[in-house]
């Protein structure tokens, strides 16, 4: 399969976006530190929400490493996003404690309800569904988090549609 180069970022950030200034200031503040690739990527993700080519190219230039290296780092760690995420992030804990208490069923149910695969975002941009490592609330297993809200003891997966409904209703009418 041949593939033309294309930016897979999904979003367009123009070169004179003022947020690059903000990122530059942060990078400059670290000029005395070593090994700053990760902190810079973390800050860039905080500022832009994700790490498209434009941002990675900028970082590579500013800290003097190849773009491929920035990309290599950004794809190694699971917390870096190359594409924009949904408005709400659903994270289902797949830590062992949750798993033995049925987290897989929770994840499957969500995938079915949202009609997306794990890791994907719904076409309306409302939800991103992710499986995550131990959230550290093993006593509440199985758990999921929607943004900062923890939903605990989801033994009965039939409650899930109701939980999602809340977020659908919050959406402002267009």
């Amino acid at each position: 399969m041949n593939k033309e180069s294309k930016c897979s970022c999904g979003g367009v950030i123009s070169a004179n976006d003022p947020r690059f200034e903000e990122l530059k200031e942060y990078i400059d503040s670290l000029k005395d530190s070593k090994g700053i690739t990760m902190p810079v990527l973390q800050e860039a993700q905080r500022i832009f929400g994700f790490l498209p080519l434009e941002v990675q190219k900028f970082i590579a230039k500013e800290i003097g490493i190849p773009v491929s290296e920035v990309y290599g780092v950004s794809t190694f760690y699971s917390q870096f996003n190359l594409t924009p995420k949904g408005k709400h992030k659903i994270a289902v804990c797949l830590g062992t404690a949750c798993y033995v208490r049925g987290a897989q069923a929770v994840l499957d149910k969500l995938a079915e309800e949202l009609d997306i695969n794990v890791g994907d975002t719904t076409p309306d941009g409302l939800f991103t569904l992710e499986a995550t490592r131990c959230l550290g609330c093993c006593s509440l297993a199985p758990v999921m988090m929607i943004d900062d809200e923890v939903y605990a003891k989801l033994d009965n997966i039939s409650v899930i549609p109701g939980i999602l409904q809340k977020y659908y209703e919050q959406r402002l009418p267009e």
Partner: peptide
Amino acid sequence: APAFDYSMR
């Protein structure tokens, strides 16, 4: 690969 699977071109 190169970043973002860009072509080596």
